[in-house]
Computed example of a mutant assay.
Amino acid sequence: MLRKDLLFDNGGGSKHRLDFKKIRDIDKLLLISTIVLILFGILNIYLCTKGDYGFLYAKKQFIWMIISLVALYIFISIDYRVFYNYVPVFYWASIVLLLITRFAGTVVNGARGWLKFGPISLQPSEIAKVAMIMMLGKMLEEMDNDINNFKNLVKLSIYAGIPMIFIIIQPDMGMTMVCFFIVLGIFFVAGLDRRIFIGGFAALIVVVAIVWNVGLIQDYQKARITSFLHPEANATTTGYHLSQSLISIGSGGVVGDRPSLYNDGTSGYAAQHVPEVQTDFIFAAIAEQWGFIGVVLLLIVYGIAITRMINIARTAKDTFGSVICIGIVAYFLFAIFQNIGMTIGLMPITGITLPLISYGGSSMLSIVMTIGLVLNIGMRRKKIRF
């Protein structure tokens, strides 16, 4: 029987096109807020890099936006249940990429976490993050959501742990934390027993202590992570990022200080003094440029996107769809809290970027892919009567 949500080309091979009967059910607020966040990110990437690089970083991010929107179209065109059948392939392919990265990857900021193909750089851990969410969703559906069965929990933990082990040994503690809190969010919503949660946190403390002391994390990385406790004591060394970030955020005031918006020769304080301002510390530049009001508006847009994703998760027609939504919600909540927290001295400094805002093609692509799946799930949460 021909499915009415997919249009097939009879000439050898299949072609998927968006069904306009279903496009009417797309969550417009989620789609619009996603695009707004991406465009606002590109604007701020340009403002904080134009002094030294002109349009270079903004242009690269714009190209990745086009690629991501194409991926978004694909991911909302095909019924997400089709992806369900290929989740194991996607998952193990991402593990293979992580394995290749371990031996042939490029070192960036102390972590061997990138693969380079000419001018294109790919971060396999971003792909593994999406694959892990989808794999957990598929497994929970096959288990009828019986997460408190010991055998099921062990199996889920193994599949969640495999990509995290490869990411830990890069070492990329930021992405490891992201994956952990994604799994934590999924397990919590799936109904994991509270006693197991307590045991899990105890195990996490042990693992962190081991990783911290066996040499996987270099001394300079440890110093950077712990510098938030006493930034003033190391303002010119390990606390330099944070001290300059705080100055930038404070200078923004209520309405912001936007010299880079009006003067081609000036990029603002954050752009000139905060390292990695277009990636990890872009919030400092945003707070300087747009002030408290701009930050509040940014958080409102994030809030709209997260609320819509939670709504889709609650009304999804199956466990697979619900888990995908919860996974991306957990990612957004943790990444936003951690990224902003580290720029204002409330959280340790890690390499966690601000979703859809920070510079990074692999990150944008993976996030937009998952948002495409969430939109797909929302469009197909109820059957259409013809």
Rank of each mutant, 00 (worst) to 15 (best):
V87D: 02
V107E: 14
F90N: 02
F90K: 00
Y73L: 06
L69G: 08
A71K: 05
S68T: 06
W64A: 04
L97Y: 10
P88Q: 00
I67T: 12
V107Y: 12
L72T: 00
L98S: 05
G105V: 03
M65H: 12
T101M: 03
F103D: 05
Y91E: 02
S77C: 12
A71D: 06
A93W: 10
F83V: 03
P88A: 03
Q61H: 10
V89N: 10
V108D: 04
N85M: 05
L98A: 05
V107G: 08
N109E: 09
I100T: 09
L99Y: 15
I67A: 13
A104L: 12
Y91M: 02
T106C: 07
I76D: 01
R81N: 14
F83H: 10
N85S: 14
I66H: 11
R81L: 11
Q61P: 05
V96F: 15
S77Y: 10
I67Q: 00
A93P: 13
A104I: 04
T106S: 13
K59I: 09
F90D: 01
A71H: 09
V89W: 13
L69K: 07
V82G: 00
L98E: 06
L99V: 15
V70C: 11
N109L: 11
K60A: 08
F62K: 08
A58Y: 13
Y57D: 03
I66G: 09
L69D: 05
L72K: 04
F75G: 03
Y84K: 02
W92S: 00
V89M: 09
N109G: 11
V87W: 06
Y57E: 02
I74V: 14
F62V: 08
K59E: 12
V96A: 13
Y86K: 00
V89F: 15
L97T: 03
M65K: 08
I76Y: 07
D79A: 06
I66S: 06
Y57A: 00
T106F: 14
R81Y: 13
V87M: 02
Y57W: 09
V82R: 11
M65P: 07
Y91G: 01
N85K: 15
K60P: 07
F75H: 05
P88H: 01
F75P: 02
V89Q: 08
S77D: 07
P88R: 02
A93D: 05
V87E: 01
I100M: 12
I100A: 09
A104E: 09
Y73F: 15
N109V: 04
I63Y: 14
K59S: 15
F75Y: 10
S68W: 13
L97I: 01
D79E: 11
L97N: 06
I63E: 10
A58Q: 08
N85R: 14
V70W: 10
K59M: 11
S77A: 14
R102A: 14
L99K: 07
L72M: 06
L99R: 05
V70N: 04
V96L: 14
L99G: 15
M65S: 14
L99E: 06
L98I: 01
V96S: 09
T101P: 01
V107F: 12
I63V: 15
I63S: 12
V89P: 10
Y91D: 02
Y84F: 04
Y84G: 02
P88I: 00
